Amino acid sequence: MDETGKELVLALYDYQEKSPREVTMKKGDILTLLNSTNKDSWKVEVKITVNGKTYERQGFVPAAYVKKL
C-alpha cells in the first residue's frame, strides 16, 4: 500500500496499450490498483513524467501482467 492506503501492483512485463481504455507500463513499474474485480484486466493508475511534470492516467492492464504488493 502507498502512503494514502491504496493498494499497489508491480508490473511483471512490459505492456503497450491497445486501446484508449488501457495504459502502457514497463516491467518494474509500480502502479496504484483501483479495481481488481475482473479476473482478466485490472484498472490501475499510472504516473507519467513529461518534461519534469507528473501526470496521472487511469486505464486497464492484463491482470496476469501485474502482481499485488
Rank of each mutant, 00 (worst) to 15 (best):
M1C: 15
D2E: 13
D2C: 15
D2K: 14
E3R: 13
E3W: 13
T4P: 14
T4I: 12
T4F: 12
T4D: 12
T4V: 12
G5A: 13
G5F: 13
G5L: 12
K6N: 10
K6E: 09
K6W: 10
E7A: 10
E7R: 11
E7M: 11
E7D: 09
E7N: 10
E7G: 10
L8V: 07
L8I: 08
L8C: 15
V9W: 04
V9Q: 00
L10E: 11
L10T: 06
L10Q: 09
A11L: 05
A11G: 01
L12G: 01
L12D: 02
Y13S: 08
Y15F: 06
Y15T: 01
Y15W: 06
Y15K: 01
Q16K: 12
Q16P: 04
Q16N: 13
Q16I: 14
Q16S: 11
E17F: 06
E17M: 11
S19H: 11
S19R: 06
P20K: 09
P20H: 09
R21M: 14
R21E: 15
R21K: 11
R21Q: 14
E22M: 04
E22N: 05
V23K: 01
V23M: 06
V23I: 14
T24P: 07
T24C: 06
M25Y: 02
M25D: 00
K26R: 12
K27P: 02
K27W: 04
K27T: 05
K27H: 05
K27E: 05
G28H: 04
G28V: 02
G28K: 03
D29Y: 05
I30R: 03
I30G: 00
L31G: 04
T32K: 12
T32I: 15
L33T: 01
L33A: 00
L33G: 00
L33C: 04
L34H: 02
N35Q: 09
N35I: 07
N35H: 06
N35W: 06
N35A: 07
S36G: 10
T37R: 09
T37N: 12
T37W: 07
N38F: 07
N38Y: 08
N38T: 06
N38R: 09
K39Y: 08
K39A: 12
D40P: 02
D40V: 11
D40C: 14
D40Y: 14
W42I: 02
W42F: 05
K43A: 08
K43Y: 15
V44P: 00
V44S: 00
V46P: 00
K47L: 12
K47P: 05
K47S: 12
K47Q: 11
I48F: 11
T49D: 08
T49V: 13
T49G: 03
T49S: 10
V50L: 11
V50H: 09
V50K: 09
N51A: 10
N51I: 03
N51W: 05
G52N: 07
G52H: 05
K53W: 09
K53N: 11
K53A: 10
K53P: 02
T54Q: 10
Y55M: 11
Y55R: 07
Y55G: 05
Y55N: 05
R57G: 03
Q58F: 06
G59Q: 01
G59R: 00
F60P: 00
F60H: 05
V61A: 01
P62D: 05
P62T: 04
A63G: 03
A63Y: 02
A63F: 03
A63N: 03
A63R: 08
A64S: 13
A64I: 11
A64L: 09
A64N: 13
V66P: 02
V66A: 02
V66F: 07
K67H: 10
K67A: 10
K67C: 15
K68E: 05
L69A: 03
L69C: 14
